[in-house]
Design a protein around this nucleic acid. Structure first.
Lengths: 178, 178
DNA sequence: GAACCATACGGAACCTTGTTCCGGTTAGCA
DNA sequence: TGCTAACCGGAACAAGGTTCCGTATGGTTC
């Protein structure tokens, strides 16, 4: 059941256009703009991506995968589970901080679903290792931690005096069992 | 230059209606709904409150004042500056967590302006005291801290596994200079 | 208490943004 | 070449914020 050639072409054009639009205007870029940039009608967007959020997910899927894949590697290569946690969270934050509007969008609905589904198991593994090693307080919920870090990334692009990474650093430090 | 009686009456009706709407639907309650609940046209809202955000600010002004006022008191009555900081941040978080949609709204524009203007000096004072006492790491930006805590309150109403207060607790703990 | 007008009001209309719908077009195959 | 299932474009709809302007009225003056 292979797709028609024009459909495949349009889907790629849309992904490219969306990626470009997200870079220059943030993930809030209007659907019409993306359609125009791809040389396509809005209807075509909605056939390929039933909702705006599906387009966002599609654009960032690769990077989420990479972030997920990095988890086990960091756990193996770090000097301690807490160090691995810190480094992995940094990776996650780096990803979010560079995508204008993504952290806020993450709080509403479907993005949430995919991102968390993919990253929670990884986070859980690292948190579990750190807990077992007695390096962080027990009972930390991986979902909650991920959401917290995601929230801290909100507004990180603006030039006011907000340093998301610093705050995330404090949060991770506060997890320590001392 | 005193306002006309009907204008004053309508302003109060609007504030009451907005407060009620915010409680039952969150601060995202549509302007039209608020107008209807107050028995007033939308035009009237915009004469009294040039933008939606001004209405939100007006509704919560009192509580922000109270929170600001509590700062010095806590500093005086607590056993240590870090303890005062923790308690004051808890107060701030309690305020935010109980207002559906307020934390997210805080990130966009004008709310920001008023809330921060009022609370930053207070936060700065407590942070300064804790810093001088050598209880937290030096160089913490009060604006950043407030924004971070505000961000952590986002999505705190939902029944998924996110505990904003716990995350805030970790953040404050991570500020410690050990 | 009548007349006047600055002030205030209501709500239709406008703009933007997401989403749906459907008549027209076309790729791929017989 | 013709057929048709798959696909496309964009007008139309819904919802929410904001603006505009003709109408109504509180308060003041005589």
């Amino acid at each position: 059941m292979t797709k028609r050639a024009d459909a495949r072409r349009n889907e790629k054009a849309l992904l490219d256009a969306a990626a470009a639009a997200f870079v220059e205007s943030g993930v809030d870029a209007p659907v019409r703009d993306i359609a125009a940039k791809a040389g396509v009608g809005v209807g075509t967007i909605y056939r390929h991506f039933p909702a705006r959020s599906d387009l966002i997910v599609a654009v960032f899927r690769h990077q989420v995968q990479e972030c997920a894949a990095a988890g086990p590697e960091l756990l193996a290569s770090s000097t301690s589970p807490h160090e691995a946690l810190r480094r992995w969270i940094d990776l996650f934050a780096d990803f979010l901080v560079t995508k204008h509007g993504l952290p806020e969008a993450l709080n509403a609905g479907d993005l949430h679903a995919y991102f968390l589904e993919r990253l929670v198991p990884v986070c859980a593994e690292i948190v579990g290792a750190a807990t077992e090693a007695g390096q962080i307080v027990p009972g930390i919920n991986p979902v909650g931690l991920l959401r917290g870090v995601g929230n801290l990334c909100i507004g990180a692009g603006r030039d006011d005096g907000y340093d998301a990474r610093q705050m995330i650093g404090f949060l991770i430090e506060g997890l320590r069992k001392d």
